[in-house]
Simulated scan of single mutants.
Amino acid sequence: MQDVIHILSGLSQFPSIDGEIMHGDMPGDKIEINDSHREKAALIFPILVEKLKAVMLQNPYQRAVVCVCGGSGVGKSETASLLGHALQVSGIGSYILSGDNYPHRIPMQNDAERLRVFRTGAVSGLVASGLYRPEARDTLRHLQETDTDADPALCASYPWLTIYQNEGKKALSGYLGSEKELNFAELSGIIQQFKTGAQALYLKRMGRTPLDLWYDRVDFSDKHVLIIEWTHGNSDRYVGVDIPILLNSTPQETLEHRRSRNRDGAVDSPFTTMVLEVEQRQLESQAHKAQIIVSKQGEVLSYAQYRQRMAQD
């Protein structure tokens, strides 16, 4: 066991990495690593090594759990892959777990549930306000059919739409990143088993269809670091993460990145933008727990610097 601490003590720089790189366990997961991801991983690596030593000295099995979290398009998968691979080639067995395997619903069904939650809450709020009239009902039908009912630009034309959107966002905020959407209990159980020396674990796999759902038995006999890459990796709703890493991007940086990638074919939809805004607020509320914060430009930030950066956006 002492060899693990000894190996960590000898690590000071990010190792040279060539060839195929290990990545998360989401089915069909593809990573596209660029120089920016390598620079971030190289920046994080020596800080992470020092923190791993402190954590492993407190664990009888010399195991530690790291999360890499952040908003859409910030490079969670790529950075987690580089960190996990760097530890692995340095002699510290690692595994990269994708939190996206742990929603209660497959992506298509979860997207539909998010929209249902938003619209149900929005209509209920509009009814409670006394502004749900026949003309509003008919307009809403058209806006929903064209997926523009979450567009704030339309509130000038339909003042009642402000109440509709605000109430819908409240309902959506209660669903996104909650136990209703995600199986935090299962992840907490996995972490507990890992940290108490489990030699093998059954881990969930979730694809795009209802049939693409299964479990694989994974050998953990030589693993000392579990890296969870996930938007919600720093959530208060599950326990056991030792070292949270936040890859930060401002809302504007996130939107620009998604537009450049044309992700999911709906990067500019008002509802997608609302989802990103809610997730961004959740990330901000959890940021104080992060032990390492890195800006999109590749700077290590203190929490105070992070708050200042977000206030400027």
Rank of each mutant, 00 (worst) to 15 (best):
I228C: 04
T231Y: 04
I227W: 03
F184H: 05
D219K: 12
L226R: 00
Y202T: 14
I228V: 12
K204G: 07
F194Q: 03
R208N: 12
R217G: 14
I191E: 03
V218G: 08
L203M: 14
G197F: 07
D212H: 09
D212Y: 06
E229F: 02
F184R: 04
F194K: 04
A185H: 05
Q192D: 06
K223N: 04
N234C: 10
K195M: 13
H232Q: 15
D212F: 05
I227L: 08
R205T: 07
S188R: 10
G197H: 10
D222V: 06
R217D: 15
W230P: 00
L182W: 09
Q193C: 11
I228P: 02
A200N: 08
F194N: 00
G233I: 02
T209L: 09
A200C: 09
M206Y: 04
H232F: 13
H224R: 03
D222H: 08
D222F: 02
F184T: 06
K204T: 10
I227K: 01
L187K: 00
W214E: 06
A198K: 10
H232S: 12
N183E: 05
R217T: 15
H224Y: 01
L226G: 03
K204I: 06
R217H: 12
A198W: 02
K204C: 12
Q192E: 06
D212E: 12
H232G: 10
H224P: 00
L182R: 13
M206C: 08
L211G: 10
P210E: 15
I227T: 05
L226C: 05
K204S: 13
T231V: 13
L213S: 09
D222K: 07
L226K: 00
Y215A: 11
T196N: 08
F194T: 03
S188K: 11
D216M: 09
L187Y: 00
R208K: 10
S235Y: 01
K204Y: 07
G207M: 06
